[in-house]
Design a binder for these strands. Structure first.
Length: 481
RNA sequence: CGCGGGGUAGAGAAAUGGCAUCUCGCAAGGCUCAUAACCUUGAGAUUGUGGGUUCGAGUCCCACCCCCGCAACCA
């Protein structure tokens, strides 16, 4: 019954590429975990999934940081990028590719992208005028000035004019509004769609896409005095990674992206500038942009100056990857802002994971070992239908799906207490067997539904239940004080 | 009048205009298969403020107060 139309559906999902000026923190981990979960879910559904993440490595800030660290730029970005892939690996995140903007394959694709842009007639040479703070080595906004001086350096900025290349973003207002309104470009959650639409309706200004003063960036192919503005370079990673220009067959197999995940701070770049650039070079626009909220830590904004930035590696080392994945997706409804802390992680870990899922698994496997000699035979149908949980995950409603699964864990605990198998085993062992077979089937189903979020835990549950001779294992989650 | 989101027990969340629900925490009781785990019951909310519509408002309308993002060359 196989024919061409039976080929699995492709599913291309991306995270932003992270700026290597900083170490991975809990926010970038959140985006990447969510993308990994969606990728695993779609793989479970038999789709041909491509999951991309990576690092953004160009920019003066990077060059400056490398300088400060006394390192050669390329060596510096190599080290920083490795920190990201290490952190993701520790979190059980398994991308299909990890793109770095300093890789030749990316640089080549960006150069081609800019040549196409130039051919499109949508770019022109213009002048950018602004206030330049020499100490900052950057333009600063007039609204940031205090008494006409740079607030950080107390110096008067120079008013300078710089020749730049501009992109006619303003040409795309109408078409973008149309495509977003009819969900050809779907923006989630709904509030973000409204935000972008109202932004678009206020009108668009052209944007400069090159820089004269930039040091560590890709040179503009037709003007050696200018370098490509890093945002333009970075956005194109989504195309360069899947072979734009180098392997067109592969590129067209995966493009357009089915879902692009990110924090709410960068949706304007992705919902406005990015699709406009793609339209200019005649490529399709992404199907869906999904924005999530921001974390506060103990009610405070996460910041380096406050010193409350959470390194995901610390949490993983103490609680394990699955617990961190569970916590972040369970604690805050996806899309909204939320507060996290180790205190809250510990509550979820001990309450939901150790006392909830872990303890249920212990009591069930222990009774199977004791009362059934470890024999559960073939799996029967689960007494509960958990498809609503998978549906919720599919729609990025991670916390809701997890709530549904944990409702069934509570139901199972109640059922055991009401049935009193420890008494029943003396009089009606058949009923105990029926009870335990049902509970095994439920746990097996829970493991399956949970696998995208907690792959390691799901595997541990499966190993025990599929072993043929069930024995009570080590706790899934040892309590932590 | 810049744009958007939000304000519901101590904390966090949920509620097609129809008995305000759930989780954590707190209090009391029960159980012994289980990780001092699990189960039952209880206390705890004039749903930010003031008005309006309605038989009936957390929900719809108006005004106000407060919190959080964004405001494009900062990733």
């Amino acid at each position: 019954m196989k024919n061409m139309s039976d080929e699995p559906r492709k599913f291309y999902i991306t995270t932003p590429i992270y700026y290597v000026n900083d170490k991975p923190h809990i926010g970038s981990a959140y985006t990447t975990i969510a993308a990994d979960v969606i990728a695993r879910l779609h793989r479970q559904l038999g789709e041909d999934v491509f999951f991309l993440t990576g690092t953004a490595e160009h920019g003066d800030k990077i060059a400056g940081s490398a300088d400060k660290a006394g390192k050669e730029v390329q060596k510096f970005v190599d080290e920083m990028s490795a920190k990201f892939s290490f952190a993701w690996d520790q979190l059980g995140i398994a991308p299909d590719d990890f793109i770095r903007t300093t890789e030749q394959r990316h640089v080549d694709a960006v150069v081609l992208f800019f040549k196409k842009l130039k051919e499109s007639g949508k770019i022109y040479e213009g002048e950018y005028e602004g206030l330049y703070c020499v100490a900052h080595e950057a333009f600063i906004k007039e609204s940031d000035l205090v008494n006409g001086l740079c607030p950080d350096h107390k110096t008067k900025p120079d008013k300078i004019k710089e020749k730049n290349w501009f992109f006619k973003l303003s040409d795309y207002q109408g078409v973008l509004i149309e495509k977003i309104e009819n969900d050809e470009l779907s923006i989630r959650p709904h509030e973000r769609k409204n935000e972008i639409l109202s932004f678009l309706k206020h009108g668009l200004e052209d944007i400069s896409i090159s820089r004269q003063k930039a040091k560590f960036a890709i040179p503009l192919p037709w003007d050696e005095n200018q370098r490509i503005y890093v945002w333009m370079d970075e956005l194109f990673n989504y195309c360069s990674a899947i072979g734009y220009g180098a392997d067109q067959e592969r590129f067209h197999k995966y493009w357009p992206a089915d879902a692009q995940l990110m924090g709410k701070d960068i949706i304007k770049f992705h919902c406005v500038i990015w699709p406009a650039l793609l339209l200019a070079i005649g490529e399709e626009i992404p199907k869906k942009i999904v924005a999530h909220g921001f974390f506060t830590v103990d009610g405070q904004k996460m910041s380096k100056t406050i010193g409350n930035v959470i390194d995901p590696n610390d949490w993983v080392a103490k609680y394990g990857a699955d617990a961190v994945r569970y916590f972040l997706l369970r604690e805050v409804p996806f899309g909204q802002d939320g507060d996290v802390s180790e205190e809250k992680l510990k509550l979820r870990y001990n309450g939901d994971l150790a006392n909830g899922l872990g303890n249920l698994f212990s009591r069930v496997t222990n009774m199977i070992e004791k009362y059934l000699d470890g024999d559960i035979g073939d799996f029967i149908k689960s007494p509960k239908d958990l498809s609503a949980a998978s549906d919720a995950f599919y729609n990025f409603d991670f916390s809701e799906g997890l709530v549904l699964i944990w409702k069934e864990i509570a139901w199972a605990n109640q059922l055991i207490d009401r049935s009193k198998p420890w008494e029943l085993v003396k009089t009606e062992p058949d009923k105990v067997k029926e009870l335990l077979l049902n509970l095994s089937a439920l746990l097996y189903d829970i493991a399956k539904k949970l696998a995208p979020i907690m792959p390691e835990t799901a595997q541990r549950i499966n190993q025990v239940l599929e072993s043929g001779e069930v024995k009570k294992p080590e706790p899934l989650f040892a309590k932590i004080d």
